[in-house]
Amino acid sequence: MGMSVLRQQRSTEAARDDARLRDELAYGDEAAFTDLHERFAPLVYTIAARITRDGRAAEDVTQEVFLAIWQRPLDYEPERGSLRGWLAMMAHRRAVDLVRREEAHRRRALDGALYAGAVSRGDPVGDQVSDSDAAERLGAALKALPAHLSRAITMAYLEGRTYREVAAELGVPEGTAKSRMREGLRRLGLTLRDQR
């Protein structure tokens, strides 16, 4: 027996809880929605704040993530993975989309010499998510990685770059950018598992 069996049991129970919560949302259970928000709003908001570095934007992203699962509960498929993992991915996806849109907007504005007005972002989240803090936080997880792996992951995760952009910026083939992300995440997974 041992840890792996216990972990297996725990993950089966957790999967059942996730499926139940999803089903209650499908049945319009507002108490389940409150429960969902209480459990996962810190996770979703933290991700949104790290990526957008903007309090107002992070709150908007957080709200949209929860409204989306309330309106389309079937989008989360429990057999594919945990609710936590799925919500984190949705939060990151929306935050990254926002950052990319803003980036595109800024480039257009620069082209049109409208620089001054367009670059101002909304309310900063304040010192709790300053760049250095975010970098430090991620840094703790990424420190163990060789620089070329942590760089690829940081560019994708924090800066919202696609693997093609990462490849172009680092001057490496696209396949190399993809495999650095994969190898980086694989090693992070081992580190995180040991920390559990």
């Binding site: 709003a41 810190p42 996770l43 908001y45 933290t46 991700i47 704040a49 790290r50 992070a58 709150e59 957080t62 594919r80 993975g81 945990s82 936590r84 993992g85 799925w86 984190a88 991915m89 990151h92 989240v125 709790q128 998510v129 936080r137 991620l138 997880a141 992951i153 995760y157 994969r182 995440l185 694989r186 992070l188 997974g189 995180l192």
Partner: peptide
């Protein structure tokens, strides 16, 4: 599934909305 779980832990969850 494994990689999504790893990515989910990158930011932590220590900020409050």
């Amino acid at each position: 599934r494994r990689l999504v779980e790893v990515v989910a832990r990158l930011s932590g969850a220590d900020l409050r909305p």
